[in-house]
Design a protein around this nucleic acid. Structure first.
Lengths: 221, 221
DNA sequence: TCGATTTTTGTACCATTTCGCAATTAATCC
DNA sequence: GGATTAATTGCGAAATGGTACAAAAATCGA
């Protein structure tokens, strides 16, 4: 059992704007921050290896509060995964939207991915989808659906990226956006896996560079 | 607690040749088969989610026997992973050795990989390295070393494959075997992940076909 | 043939951990 | 003070990893 010994001086919660005003005893935690901590733990240890006590310690909430706020362990896991996907999506969507050369766009996308995979105090944490969600996917249809959606979303984003590049004449007519997109996704997946095995950032960047060269043609070498 | 109700009529063990003759009570199990069952379970559920009772039920050995034969849970996991890698290696090594065109060699390698990833009664099981070992890799140096070795072995095998192809004139001079090898590995990784999410074989084969086309040049389309 | 020896099996057990929840107490608003 | 919401304590049933110990099944030696 993990309990905090923090004096009950309730952390002043910055009165959320928009919300009318909470009635009873104020929360001693911020749901968004707590969910972030839970996400970090699940990402590091996976579902089964992460106990509610671990989560309790990491979030600073005790188990009943956790339960009340997020539901049981599986629900918390799913909410964490949703949060992860929102974050990842947010960090990429701008790069996909803005106008720029394909090569630059790809470079930025992979840089963003590496930042996600390599961040974390206690060693690189990899990709939630690849490292833990894919494991749970066999047995849990809901998680599997999320994984599948994540995979196809990435494929689609890359495909439209290559389609635009082709229209702009950056790629030869023979280029097949769908095939290139799957290669681009595969490159994401391979760096996700390798980052988990603590392959140094330098090597991952080499892999990315090589893959980009193959996809959009080597840079005036 | 899971116990078998099998009558104690000890399964006649096919007197192993070579081994001088075991002294005490004969084993009621075959270590190789039991290890295979353990491997299947770990592959399906991962390390933490697989209990000793699960393993006991799957192997038909009770826990003390399991412990005596393979050591504790972690040791059994590592032995399972070693077994997996030997099996995977065995299914590929011939394909890498024999003389044949690159394209055909790649097609066969990926077919072998898909057979590994998609076999299993209760849904596709994916790749041990990608699905569970990579997860454990962050926290366990020994497992991490095995994962790293597996990754680089694959890279090397593909690299030498492309090097030979280049020497035989099957690839343009501009082709970089190391870069192509990493793409080939990435393709392995992406189908490993997707197979876990139950992407149908047909789609995985499409991905493989597209990747091969990019790596060795599209087949006279 | 028969007991000693060796090795494995089967049963039971232990200490911990795990998830979940009920009951109580605390803080805030009305 | 009453209502409302949350925190805290602590329980409990089940599962978990690991082990002690005796019974069982084989070989070996005399």
């Amino acid at each position: 059992m993990v309990q905090k010994s923090k004096p009950p001086a309730a952390a002043k919660e910055p009165q959320r704007r928009g919300e009318p005003k909470r009635r009873g005893r104020p929360r001693a935690y911020e749901p968004e921050i707590a969910l972030g901590k839970a996400l970090d733990l699940f990402r590091k240890q996976g579902f089964a290896a992460t106990s509610l006590d671990d989560l309790s310690a990491a979030t600073g909430m005790n188990r009943p509060s956790l339960y009340g706020a997020f539901g049981d362990k599986r629900e918390l896991y799913i909410k964490s995964y949703q949060r992860y996907r929102e974050d990842a999506r947010a960090s990429m969507v701008e790069i996909f939207r803005q106008e720029m050369p394909v090569r630059q766009r790809l470079e930025r996308i992979y840089a963003a991915a590496l930042n996600i995979y390599l961040s974390g105090e206690t060693g690189p944490r990899g990709c939630f989808t690849v490292v833990t969600a894919a494991s749970e996917a066999v047995g849990d249809p809901e998680i599997r659906a999320m994984v599948l959606e994540g995979l196809t979303d990435l494929d689609k984003a890359f495909a439209s990226c290559f389609r635009r590049a082709k229209e702009k004449g950056e790629l030869p007519d023979s280029a097949d956006p769908a095939v290139l997109a799957q290669l681009a996704s595969a490159t994401i997946h391979t760096i996700a896996i390798r980052s988990r095995a603590r392959v140094p950032r330098k090597e991952l960047e080499e892999i990315v560079k090589g893959a980009i060269d193959v996809m959009v043609g080597a840079k005036s070498s």
